[in-house]
Nucleic acid binder design. Structure first.
Lengths: 135, 135
DNA sequence: GCTTGACCTTCCAGACACTGGAAGCCTTAT
DNA sequence: ATAAGGCTTCCAGTGTCTGGAAGGTCAAGC
């Protein structure tokens, strides 16, 4: 299967698939004409990575997950630990963003948003209401 | 004020401040010895950017905010629009992360996490329970 | 005056995960 | 024969720093 089909079936852009080959995430065979030739296994790996990436795993985490997938002897606890660590990271990011959201929505709410120049948002950023921006 | 003091007072690493000068966010004067010499205004701008960055504004948004701050004639509506757009972005990121969190925590929950090899997390990523990973 | 250590300077490279574009080869259809 | 579209490689850029090397400057202590 050529890269275009692999792209369509895995949901990844062809450019990204070439990049994944570059960094060793997949190693498709080559046809006589030099084109990449993706097997079902290659395609599976690509789709696997696509899903893992969409869950926010880093490339290195995807690499680890792929090798755990290949290792039929590994303990599921190893996978769970990796996933749990990532889940904690996601939850940390959510908390951080929620804190930003709270502060920023308060500022936006306070700003009358008309054609007058004074603006609580800029005042907040400038530190004039510091306790409300950086508590 | 030297860069070390500016760093301590703005909460930014010295490296980052040099980078901000590189990209034109601040333009500190220079002393005779070639050291950067930060004025109160420079320091204010750094602290401003530090706060805006901590609220997740991009560098280019910070640049826009700084120039809005400098423009004593601007309408607060302009600032509000920028902040609101950013707030929407943050909310979008939160939703995305929450979707990841939901899917991943379901998978983690399903995985027994012992020393047996079968693992619902990897199965999910491999697409064997596709509807639960990619709805 | 000399050394030491802390500070400052510039420049280069690397991190992440792609993404765009240029130049050129291959295939398929007309 | 030609044109369109797919494929190849390689180089460069994105955003936001961060680390490190090589070297200049300053203040304190001997």
């Amino acid at each position: 299967m050529n890269i275009g089909d692999a792209a369509a079936r895995s949901g990844l852009p062809a450019k990204t698939i070439r990049y994944y080959e570059d960094i060793g995430l997949v190693s498709p065979a080559r046809s006589n004409n030099g084109y990449r030739d993706f097997s079902d296994t290659d395609l599976h790996n690509l789709a696997f990575v696509q899903r893992a990436r969409s869950l926010g795993f880093s490339i290195e985490e995807c690499r680890a997950l792929l090798s755990l997938y290949d290792d039929r002897e590994r303990a599921s606890a190893d996978v769970k630990a990796l996933a749990k660590a990532h889940l904690d990271q996601i939850e940390g990011k959510i908390s951080g963003l929620q804190a930003m959201q709270k502060t920023l929505s308060e500022l936006v709410h306070k700003c009358h948003g008309d054609d007058r120049p004074d603006c609580p948002i800029l005042d907040g950023l400038a530190g004039e209401h510091r306790k409300e921006v950086c508590k």
